[in-house]
Nucleic acid binder design. Structure first.
Lengths: 208, 208, 208, 208
DNA sequence: TATGAATGAGAGTTCATTCAT
DNA sequence: GATGAATGAACTCTCATTCAT
């Protein structure tokens, strides 16, 4: 994008190419997963869709598992970034607002790529190094703990870790199921209602 | 057709043998799933562990999928029976008691065969006719709705279906995760604490 | 059919039952072959359709091959009987008439059970003891030879065996193909034309 | 893309390897069919005999059926090429000569690979996309029709299609049976006699 | 004798992975 | 590096046949 000198180090060109190949592979994998399901996502097929050879695939990913892991990670990161963005400044907000925002963001997180999310959640066997898909847990657990810590005196909390666990797990479950399974039946209106209910559930639990 | 005392009809002998084979197969499947994971559960291996031939397997189960489905169903039924037993009479109990009981039962349900439950939840690709594992949903959803209906005036409920969804999903998620993932870290004491917290969460949500 | 004494020897009853079972099996085989093809004709399926157990099937037929052979033989015999009936007295007829009758009968023979005939001809691998399906050959070869012998002086024949071979093979081929493959396209009228042509072919060849 | 002398494009090297594999597979199939019959021609066995892996087999042939089809096609093409070569110029020849040549060629066609021809004709179930083996029909039907058309005035023909059908079918049947079944008994001398008889049969039928 | 549950060799096929080019 | 042909273990499933009841 910036003006470039006439000679670029080959290494960078190479790295760019590598990067492009890796991206293409991850994207192809995600695409096949969404469109045809895990069963159809063979390495040969992935390579073909990515426009590279199987050999190249194995140049960049040591196994099929690693490829799927990359898809999961990429998806996770997209979500994490979005959540971080949306939740900036939440620490200083009131409980009601904060919790409502949290739930809203959780819904939004599941809507980043719901089809992919569903496939990852339902079709990928959690075996080997393939971790559980955690939309709203790891990083957000910390965030939530921090919030609780900060507002501790306003809240009715004994065990902070336990409370965080309860809240984060609950929000994750409610929004995950709502978005990924019942979304056809759920109008935006009902979704709002659900968000409100979930917020009330958590708020009631936390407040003194 | 004539009365033949002392001699059992062949059909029963037959049914017994069949039944034994079917049982052996389902058990073998569950055992392999637990001990070695879904990947290792090939039809030949299952038959071998069951002590029958692959042919017999396919005499009773049209596909590998059907076998796994049978394992799921059997597990589901064990849980359902236990839940039914434990929850008899819950309809007439107070909210506090009822909800506490519900959460306690949910924990117990996940402890029926936690290893199997975990494999079923995490390693079985939800593809084809293989439904989601629902420990605490379908039948219990109805039960919960009935409870809420009955105690409606004592409660703060707008949308009964929505409230049921929120409660059932929440209890399921909290207990599922606690039992199946963090159980190593969770002492019985902490578990009790969790149950209390979950109960408080739900109770606070429902009460006026 | 005749009036029967009150007591029949059990052996006969048994024989009748056996006979009935055998018939049922052969019929079931033929039926499955016609309706679903050779691939679907497994011994278990045949037994089921015949209303007996696989065990019984093997009581009467040592192998699947034997069963198919029985179907072929039964079909062959039906044809042979029909041909014999229709061709009685042909020996004394004139060449024109005799040959025309022969061709007509050949067509009729292929129409005894054309669907079965086609399956037997096309789907049954001629392996082991399974012979070629010969509608119009073995017995009729002899008959034809006899005719030629008898009318030798009217005919232009060097090698009687060779002439028989030529005629019988030709008639068989022309009628077989016409009836079994092109019968949809062939109107009765065209069929008649074909019969006439075939007759002319053979007659021209035989006559001085 | 640039001209690269002395270096063959990779594609060709690749194509050569592929081609060799495909050839080996088709040859192996034919060999097994001839030597051991259709029953023994399993895909694994074919691959083994071809000196490649089953995986390679399925890289080039989508099914066992496709492999057999390839053998049939290859055989058919060999025959077709031979027939075309031998029959060049037949259109302008006299009836006697033309018909005699035709029959002679038909015999020769069946002698291209008689054992294979026999297996293909007798053991391959005509199921799915596997067509009838037609040594002397499709293309030659057209050729024969053309001949009759051209010589129509010299001949006694009403229905040209019908006449072609009669002649082609007859020649095919006579030579097929003679070469493939009775060839042990048939000396070259008898074979010549048969050819003469067949030619006389057809000629007599066509001539005015 | 009839039954049908049980057998198990073997079929066709797939696919993650390797490696010569 | 990139290619893609080749690999082959492993899988699901079938079916002619046997044999305990």
């Amino acid at each position: 994008m910036a003006s470039r000198p006439l000679i670029k180090p080959r290494k960078i060109a190479t790295q760019q190419r590598s990067r492009a190949t890796v991206d293409a592979l991850v994207q192809a994998t995600a695409r096949i997963l969404v469109k045809e399901g895990f069963d159809k996502a063979s390495t040969n097929r992935i390579a073909a869709v990515a426009g590279v050879s199987v050999g190249s695939l194995y140049q960049y990913f040591p196994s099929k598992e690693a490829l799927v892991a990359a898809v999961i990670e990429r998806h996770q990161q997209e979500i994490t970034q979005m959540v971080r963005r949306e939740l900036a400044g939440v620490l200083t907000e009131s409980i009601d607002k904060a919790v409502h925002k949290l739930v809203t963001v959780a819904v939004k997180a599941h809507r980043v790529d719901p089809k992919l999310h569903r496939v990852l959640a339902e079709q990928i066997p959690r075996v080997g190094k393939l971790e559980k898909l955690e939309t709203f847990n790891r990083e957000n657990f910390a965030l939530f703990s921090a919030y609780l810590e900060r507002h501790r005196e306003e809240l009715r909390i004994d065990d902070l870790g336990l409370a965080s666990y309860v809240c984060v797990t609950t929000i994750e479950a409610l929004t995950h199921n709502a978005v990924l399974h019942d979304s056809r039946m759920l109008s935006d209106q009902t979704m709002e209602a659900l968000v409100d209910e979930a917020a009330r559930l958590i708020t009631g639990y936390l407040k003194k």
